[in-house]
Amino acid sequence: MQFKKVLLVDDEPLVRRSLEKTLLRAGYQTETAGSALEGIGLFLKNNLTDSPFDLVILDINMPNFEGIEKQGAGLDLLSEIKAHNPDIPVVMLTAFDEVNKAKEAVSRGALAYIVKGREQNLISLLNETLGE
């Protein structure tokens, strides 16, 4: 059986690497990016292959498409990804414990909004969503 493919975009290397390891251990083929620009590049590149990503996990605060650190760049990336593939599940993973940001994310098509520090249910959510 083929491994499901997950794209993880977060500008904090510690989070990126530790989460990548957790995802790999959980059986997901994982690729990572450190900015919105790098993220959309990876997403589009994979979208053209016969094995596109099955799910995307996005941080909210990160360098935007111009490489400039921006609050909410992750939400722009979410919209961009959804524009290319409206059906792909996207999970926001952020330090922002803010209801309005969560609503914004859901309105842009996010499947879930998880606050860092309360991410214990992330893997079970992925499993449920991707039917593992």
Partner: peptide
């Protein structure tokens, strides 16, 4: 008490706004 968890769960249930 609005939390992101409660809000996203309610929105997922088809609620228009929280």
């Amino acid at each position: 008490l609005l939390t992101v968890e409660k809000t996203t769960r309610l929105l997922a249930l088809g609620v228009d706004d929280v």
